[in-house]
Design a protein around this nucleic acid. Structure first.
Lengths: 153, 153
DNA sequence: CATGAAAGCCATGGTAA
DNA sequence: TTACCATGGCTTTCATG
């Protein structure tokens, strides 16, 4: 973990908000020269702090407005059972996020689908058919109150 | 909701993976001309399909590697109580995502913190002190199995 | 040693045919 | 769709504190 000064933090903050900002605008915003920003960005990339630049898409606009939180329990805890499930998770594009959890359930996933029927299909034909899965419990989101990709710095 | 042809879908897919791709590379990848890509992107932006371009940051590298899922229950269901809570959520940078939920709890939040102690502080001094909040239940993530910002198209 | 100023190259976005 | 052009951003150099 790299230690960051105030200007590094401001650079990270700006790039998390807008990945298209030019070095000149960035320089003005963070109070450094454009060349200095360039060098700092390179260093932050090399240190693994800054990752990919991605374009965000409006879920409603492409008919993926329904979010479901799905808790999953494994039917055993051997490495291969878990790895098989994690491969399944990686391969399914509708599973946006997945966490291995402490507590009553083994995994928590966020699944995006067009509608309830599509979720039913996902559950019945994909998830619950998977040999690693012992059970699942789903909760539908009523609204997406907040969504951010920016971590506090 | 705009209807998309195959090329639109490929453009969205590419931009979700790499927001820095040039129109020329994009054109080659999706099988259209660069000018055509440019026009389609403009139209997708105007239709609200394509949103911001953001830079992703490695949570571990900046000391925000601990994810906690926090279920929250309101102490009443009037509009102002909910709005006060949602403002709180927006204002706290460590709350990355928040959903209004069906089921036993009213909200589900993902909170990123440096360590367990910081989460304790967040709970005791911020969340549980909030006048809208009746109770909360937290679950720690052991691993971030999958994280994607790309919706299926 | 890192920074800021300056300048050139080149790739890119935008346009016209 | 293809070709072109001008804009401006990226990258390097160099002097400075």
């Amino acid at each position: 973990m790299k230690d960051l000064d105030a200007i590094d933090r401001r650079i990270i903050k700006a790039l998390q908000e807008d990945g298209t900002i030019t070095h000149n605008d960035l320089a003005e915003r963070v109070g450094a020269s454009s060349a200095s920003c360039w060098r700092r960005i390179k260093a932050l990339e090399a240190a693994g702090v800054l990752g990919r630049t991605v374009r965000l898409v409006n879920p409603q606009a492409i008919g993926r407005g329904v979010n479901v939180m799905c808790n999953v329990r494994m039917n055993s805890y051997t490495l291969d059972v878990r790895q098989a499930f994690e491969k399944f998770v990686r391969d399914r594009a509708e599973i946006i996020e997945c966490f291995s959890m402490s507590g009553d359930w083994d995994y928590l996933m966020r699944v995006v689908v067009p509608d309830v029927e599509a979720y039913n299909h996902f559950m019945m034909h994909s998830l619950l058919n998977h040999p690693s899965v012992a059970g699942a419990s789903s909760h539908f989101a009523l609204a997406h109150t907040k969504y951010s990709t920016a971590l506090p710095v």
